[in-house]
Design a protein around this nucleic acid. Structure first.
Length: 427
RNA sequence: GGAGGAAUGGCAGAGCGGUUGAUUGCAGCAGUCUUGAAAACUGCCGUACUGAGAGGUACCGGGGGUUCGAAUCCCUCUUCCUCCGCCA
């Protein structure tokens, strides 16, 4: 969430940012309400502090008198404190309720878009930051969509997943399973080579972690909730990995912290059905390798670009045609300040498939997580910037490989994957 | 799952109703000494809110309670340790 002081000192910028996100009028009014609530909070806190200070003075006095054995005088002081108690209790209650309202309102405010974020409402308004190849590869009319190729070569089985679990839970088999594992290892090795520490995090997180990265409150419906233990299945490794440094004060010399993790990701996404979500286009469980960085604010945008090039490098090595979009204000995630999406061209489906999203969250997540760092000799403490990106999301990469690399003999495995798969052709 | 014990500052570890935001040691920072380093010595060494500042307030795993006053007493939750049971 945003810091109240930031809102106070940059009100016009915040309002302009919200407008770029096409925020409704009530959200703009929430800004006023936040500033008012914060004023109330300060006033009440001061009142409470003063009342407490008075009480502490009496208590110290009573203590001193008791020590000297002056019991009667102590009794006298004690009776003077009586009224104070009720007053503090009342102020305390009001303060608590004000703070709760303030937090509630702050949770409603999304991150402020970076200045480079284009104005726009729908995905059509996204800016093409780096165009795809021209002309786009063509496969002709005989090209099959990946779900048909998968059926032909038994790569994965969605029907079987329905029997075992439900819709959207693919079962990978044989060479398909091996391809999946090959991609995981390839992506992890590439991330390690780029200096990311490999992490194997828990696949379930508690409420605090889900709140830290912004999944809670509000987006409960996106996650599977284990109610008996009040745990959430992770929708992305971003959640457990970023939360590793929650509630910590790092030293500036430790930054940036680079971490990578492979995990399955679970998404309820009560979304639509139809051609666009067929096959692996949208599933409830998929594998993903995530890269996360915790960065110094001065470096975060430079780092965002490095992450962008890392992902671009992966797609180049796999030989997949892709383009990069800079998301417009209306299409950007709630917690992000700047997001680039990677889309792979599917010659068979004749459309672009999103395979990665790389974002800078600036201090939006770190403020929630109280993730800070200490700078230099003056020991100034400030919030870090957090960034993450998919490098990459497997299900859609598998779909892209199946479709783009199909041939009469079978699916040609990209060169870089062959040492992992142990076979050249999926058939 | 059953029975006990414990949770204090970066770490170790005192305190168990009154001037304790917290003894002490280690680590860290600044300085004295030294050609330099080490050693020794001196000082500093948590976070947040609030205030122009002096200062004030809150926090000793989380939440609640008793009391004029709680790190210290009570309730509750969480986590960890030991023993028993079960188990990949």
């Amino acid at each position: 969430m945003l810091q109240v002081n930031f809102i106070r000192n940059n009100k016009e910028r915040v309002l302009a940012g919200l407008k770029k996100r096409n925020a409704k009028e009530d959200l703009l009014q929430a800004i006023e309400s936040i500033l008012q609530l914060d004023d109330d909070r300060k006033r009440l806190k001061t009142e409470l502090d003063e009342a407490n200070a008075e009480r502490n003075r009496f208590s110290a006095e009573i203590g001193a008198l008791m020590k000297q054995g002056k019991k009667e005088e102590a009794e006298q002081s004690r009776s003077q404190v009586a009224g104070l108690k009720e007053r503090t209790a009342a102020i305390e209650e009001e303060l608590k309720s004000t703070e709760e309202q303030l937090t509630e309102q702050l949770y409603l405010i999304p991150n402020i878009p970076h200045e480079s974020v284009p104005v726009g409402i729908t995905p059509e308004d996204n800016e093409i930051y780096r165009p795809g190849p021209d002309p786009l590869p063509e496969l002709g009319d005989t090209a099959l969509p990946h779900w048909e190729i998968a059926a032909k070569y038994k790569v994965f089985d969605l029907e079987l997943g329905v029997k075992l679990t439900g819709a959207g839970f693919p079962v990978y088999r044989g060479k398909g399973a091996k391809l999946e594992r090959a991609l995981i290892n390839f992506f992890l090795d590439e991330a390690a080579a780029a200096g990311y520490e490999e992490i194997i995090p828990p696949l379930m997180v508690n409420e605090d972690s889900a709140r830290g990265t912004g999944q809670l409150p509000d987006k409960e419906a996106q996650m599977y909730h284990v109610t008996l233990d009040n745990l959430y299945l992770i929708p992305t490794a971003e959640v457990p990995v970023t939360n590793i440094y929650r509630d910590q004060i790092l030293d500036a010399s430790e930054l940036p912290i680079k971490m990578t993790a492979y995990t399955p990701c679970f998404r309820r996404e009560a979304g639509s059905y139809g051609a666009h979500v067929r096959g692996l286009n949208r599933v409830h469980q998929f594998d993903k390798i995530e890269i996360v960085q915790i960065a110094h604010p001065d470096q975060s945008y430079e780092i965002l670009m490095q992450m962008l090039e890392h992902v671009a490098g992966l797609l180049n090595k796999l030989g997949l045609p892709f383009r990069i979009l800079r998301l417009c204000g209306g299409d950007m995630g709630f917690t992000s300040a700047l997001t680039f999406d990677f889309e792979v061209w599917s010659a068979a489906q004749k459309r672009w498939l999103e395979v990665s999203s790389v974002s800078n969250f600036e201090t939006y997540q770190s403020n929630r997580m109280k993730m800070r760092f200490r700078e230099g000799k003056d020991k100034d403490i400030q919030l870090v910037h957090t960034l993450n990106g998919s490098a990459l999301a497997l299900a859609r990469i598998v779909a892209s490989i199946l479709e783009n690399n199909q041939s009469p003999e079978g699916v040609v495995i990209p060169e870089v994957l062959r040492k992992y798969t142990g076979f050249d052709l999926l058939n």
